[in-house]
């Protein structure tokens, strides 16, 4: 059953709007219909006009109508953005986006993690594993070096991972350089950075050791590009 308000009831609602200082005619007319609908929907649940209108009026705060009207008029008086303003806005957004992307672009890891004076004992590629005695892929480079030799970050970045373990990589660090490159330093005797810390190229991050599955002290170094392990040699600059 559809309830419809009679003229007397509509006039009652109109008085409510007037009392709440709603006097902008197009809006007043519209809110009159709106509030009548709200009351009718309550009355459809079986309550009287008197109770329904009271419940509906109570949902509006003292200044709600006035604010509604002010807000409407304010928006209508606002001038649309001129083309000039829009192009400035777009330029600003582009600059911001550019700065953000630029901020995430570091050099690929290009320096030698121990400096240049250390012998490479195992290259990137297939090899006979010294412990397991099986042919296995070697995903990094091993530098032979005494325990305690300083290990340096090979590019600017953030410490993404610090792990202390007795097998596999042993104690190791992962640095994230940008959204593409990471580097990994394994078999460390000591770790000198914390997870989340920023580092600069050349910063001391740890010391050489033999903490994981390893036969002698060395640094196992990896470069990871877009999630894939790649030969670090391709990125070293002389």
């Amino acid at each position: 059953m559809v309830t419809e308000l009679n003229n007397q009831q509509i006039a009652y609602v109109e008085d409510f709007l007037t009392a709440h200082q709603l006097d902008y005619p197009p809006l007043k007319e519209e809110m009159l219909d709106h509030i009548c609908c709200m009351i009718e929907s309550r009355m459809a649940e079986g309550i009287s006009f008197h109770l329904a209108s009271k419940k509906v009026f109570d949902t509006f705060g003292k200044d709600d109508m006035k604010e509604l009207q002010d807000q409407t008029i304010f928006l209508l008086e606002q001038k649309p953005l001129t083309m000039k303003k829009i192009s400035f806005l777009v330029l600003g957004l582009l600059l911001t986006a550019f700065t953000l992307v630029w901020g995430m672009k570091a050099d690929p890891p290009s320096s030698y993690p121990l400096g240049k004076d250390f012998e490479v004992t195992s290259h990137f590629g297939m090899r006979l594993h010294p412990v397991y005695k099986k042919k296995k892929m070697h995903f990094g480079i091993d530098f032979r070096a005494p325990v305690g030799t300083p290990v340096y970050a090979t590019s600017d970045g953030v410490v993404e991972k610090v792990a202390e373990q007795k097998r596999g990589y042993g104690n190791h660090i992962v640095l994230r350089h940008d959204d593409s490159f990471k580097s990994l330093y394994a078999q460390l005797s000591e770790i000198k950075v914390d997870s989340g810390q920023s580092v600069k190229k050349g910063d001391l991050i740890g010391l050489v050791g033999s903490s994981g599955t390893s036969t002698a002290p060395h640094l196992h170094y990896e470069v990871i590009k877009d999630g894939k392990k790649v030969d670090p040699v391709n990125y070293f600059t002389p």
Partner: peptide, 10 residues
């Protein structure tokens, strides 16, 4: 209503 009508008129 306070959100709807100003937006409609705009």
């Amino acid at each position: 209503e306070g959100a709807l009508y100003p937006t409609l008129h705009k």
